[in-house]
Simulated scan of single mutants.
Amino acid sequence: MTALKAHEVARFLARPDLSEGIFLAYGPDTGLVRETAQRLIRHLSGDDPASANITIFDGPDLASDPTQLPLEARSNSLFGGKRIIRVRNATKALVMPLTELRDDPGGTAIVLEADNLPPRDALRALVEAAKLGRALPCYPDSDETLMALMRETFNQAGIRADSDVIPTLREILGNDREITRRELEKLCLYAAGSKTLTRDDVLLLCADNGALAIDAILDATGSGHAEKLDLALNRALSANVNPQQLLAMLTNHFANLRRWRTEMDKGKTARAVLESVKPRPHFSRMAALEQQVRLWGDNSLATASERLLQATSDSRRRPILAETILRRTTLALCMIAATQ
Rank of each mutant, 00 (worst) to 15 (best):
A50V: 04
N89A: 15
D58A: 04
A90Y: 02
K92Q: 06
P60D: 10
D104M: 02
A93C: 03
T67I: 13
F57S: 09
A73C: 07
A63D: 14
D48A: 14
P105G: 02
T108R: 01
L94S: 03
R83P: 13
R83I: 07
L71M: 13
L71H: 10
N116W: 00
E100N: 15
D115Y: 05
P105S: 05
A125Y: 04
N53V: 06
D61H: 12
A125E: 09
L101Q: 04
T91S: 07
S51N: 14
T99Q: 11
T108L: 02
L78V: 06
L98M: 04
I84C: 13
K92G: 00
L69D: 02
P119R: 13
R102M: 10
L126C: 10
R83Y: 05
P66V: 08
L78T: 09
R74T: 03
K82Q: 15
L69N: 06
V127C: 00
L117N: 06
M96H: 12
A122M: 02
G46I: 05
P70W: 11
P118T: 12
A129V: 01
P49T: 12
S64D: 15
N116D: 09
G80N: 08
L71G: 05
A122G: 07
I54S: 08
D61W: 06
P105N: 06
F79A: 12
S77N: 10
T99P: 01
I110A: 02
G46E: 05
P118Y: 02
L98N: 00
Q68D: 01
D48Q: 14
D65R: 15
M96A: 14
L94M: 03
I110T: 07
A93Q: 14
G59P: 14
S45M: 04
A63V: 08
L101D: 11
I84F: 07
L112A: 04
I56L: 13
A52Q: 10
K82T: 11
P70M: 11
T108M: 01
F57H: 12
R120V: 07
S51Q: 15
D121W: 10
L101E: 14
S64W: 12
A125S: 11
L69C: 06
A125R: 02
S64Q: 15
N53A: 12
A73I: 10
S45I: 07
A90Q: 11
G80R: 05
V95D: 08
P118V: 10
R124C: 02
A52L: 12
G81N: 14
R124T: 03
R83G: 06
S45N: 04
K82D: 08
Q68P: 01
V87N: 09
A129R: 11
P60Y: 07
A73H: 09
A90K: 07
G46M: 01
F79N: 04
L101I: 13
D103W: 03
M96F: 06
A114L: 08
L123T: 04
G46A: 03
A129M: 01
K82F: 04
